[in-house]
Design a binder for these strands. Structure first.
Lengths: 323, 323
DNA sequence: CCGTCGTATCGAAACGTTTCGCCACCTCAG
DNA sequence: CTGAGGTGGCGAAACGTTTCGATACGACGG
């Protein structure tokens, strides 16, 4: 009499096949050899019972792993609106997926710290700290921090913000620019490093403002700035999206880029809707994602992992020219 | 003698506090009252042992729930490049997060079906079917399909593609357009429905081509089409990003939008880099996300859930005008 | 013919939690 | 003083899997 019969378990399969629980388990895990005859008996028993493979919950408890890796990105829509986030996320997901791990989005709320996570990736460029961090450390969940500030007991994946920004600044200096302004990200590790790199060359660069990597916000800040201080010959932004906003705003006021104003970005992402190739610092997004995922895998397997700093590359486009 | 001592368990806490395992559990879950004296004893025992709350793995097995909900979106970078995806994702995440659930990204590989998932959201507009579906159904994992084709035993969340597309088409017809072309998404449920809506008004609309919701691809298709067939007065796209691509390409050829060519989109997302407000069909992205998440919650709790079809709204912008 | 080895299988013990049913005790009404 | 009712706590049984150590058995070399 069927009724609302509960899902079959491996024990049911074993019983139906007339073998022990352990043999049934081995049949599916393949961790030890099983004779062909019994293998077939077990498989057909499983099929006829409709058993669909080991229950992930039981398996997780036994193995001490859930196969789920959290990725903390702050507000989701903000994080993914930045086109730099996607190739990185893709690479992380690909490497983890190949290892059978899944990626869980950790938003703003802290509840997620109670979920079964094997490791957590911190990729919250915008912020310097984050709530559940303490709880995760206490639970000894491996932490991999991407472009974050220094924290004890975690692995870091970073890029050479400072070097890239300095190279870009040198490029502008070579072009004859002397009065330079910068549009920065909100206070954070990348913001500080990138600004420091710029100031190695232009110690007194003025500040347009600080905002997220958002076109409209950048445009607004540029509008205010250009109205007030028409004297600068170049604006260095901390993201390509910001730079695009500045370009659009400059044009709106009749300024030509780059002959009237040079504009530079950071990241090296595609901006197909802009008919101009930005001068920018290209960061290796895919390599960053891979390195992050590989650090996660290593930490999960208990290995010690060295921090990583990836190189960046200056790409000169059509948005910068002689002062 | 400390050494590499394993993490403390609730049983250790109970022993240290001199109470039974069950009492210790109740102290933290609050499922039954515990006297103030013992509560304090247990709490301080937990604190001194460094016990950081119930191990999610044990809890998951016992409760039969992991707290993780999968969301299948196909290739990640493709899915999230579409700006329509983000508000929806945000809303889903918010509602699920409030219920203590996390969102796990399921990419293209099928391994993820072996993870401990309480439910799965199918939001793969681009495709008509997907590998692990069968396995998930066999495991009786609740499935909520967003804008997908009909599948047995799943819950559907949809929008009124056809009605919206028809309303938009009527708007163009009112403006006097008679020769209309359409740029569609790749074959899928939304594509079919939106095209059907258009053909209610323009049965013989020609087809520019089909592509993802991608600016560059749309631009390329528009270029080919406009070179070959200059006779149409309006192009109806199946996404705003596509429409933006068509606008850019039309302008590149010296055509004015809307006086030389009317262009319409779908979705109602922000395109801040376009100095033109698109005529489009606005879909309620946040409501769609909320409805999806609520369906998931209901299905997880075992309830039967009705399918949902959300209304859309025509928004007339500056990209369409008299023929 | 006996000792050894390798292979296939099995039983039992984890993994860490929640919850069901029961017991002991205290209080209060009769 | 006694029985009823309520409260706080306890023991034990799940939840479903993997894996360790032991056992049975056939083959093989001496």
């Amino acid at each position: 009499m069927p009724g609302p019969t509960r899902a079959p378990t491996l024990a049911d399969v074993a019983a139906a096949a007339g073998v022990s629980l352990s043999t049934a388990s081995l049949t599916f895990s393949g961790n030890k050899p099983v004779s062909e005859a019994t293998r077939e008996r077990v498989l057909s028993a499983a099929a006829s019972l409709g058993w669909t493979g080991p229950n992930p919950l039981g398996r997780s408890l036994r193995r001490g792993r859930s196969g789920v890796v959290g990725i903390a990105v702050g507000q989701l829509s903000t994080a993914f609106r930045d086109p730099a986030a996607l190739p990185m996320l893709d690479a992380v997901s690909e490497v983890l997926g190949a290892a059978g791990l899944g990626l869980l989005l950790m938003g703003d709320d802290e509840e997620h710290a109670r979920l079964p996570l094997d490791a957590v990736i911190y990729d919250i460029c915008g912020r310097d700290d984050w709530g559940p961090y303490g709880e995760l450390v206490a639970r000894e969940v491996p932490l991999v921090v991407v472009e974050g500030p220094s924290w004890p007991g975690t692995t870091f994946i970073d890029i050479d913000h400072r070097g890239g920004a300095a190279a870009l600044a040198a490029h502008l200096h070579d072009l004859g620019h002397r009065r330079v302004a910068t549009l920065t990200l909100e206070a954070s590790h990348p913001q500080r490093e990138r600004e420091a790199g710029l100031r190695e060359v232009f110690p007194r660069a003025s500040v347009v403002g600080a905002c997220a990597s958002d076109l409209a916000e950048a445009q607004r800040l540029a509008a205010d700035f250009l109205s007030a201080d028409p004297g600068v010959t170049a604006i260095v932004c901390q993201s390509d999206v910001q730079a695009a906003g500045v370009v659009l705003e400059a044009r709106r006021r009749g300024l030509d880029v780059p002959s009237d104003l040079s504009v530079a970005g950071f990241d090296g992402v595609a901006t197909p809707w802009l008919d101009l190739s930005l001068t920018t610092v290209v960061q290796p997004l895919v390599a960053k994602g891979r390195a992050t995922a590989e650090a996660v895998l290593a930490r999960i397997s208990g290995a010690d992992v060295d921090d990583v700093v990836l190189p960046v590359e200056l790409r000169v486009g059509d948005s910068t020219g002689p002062a």
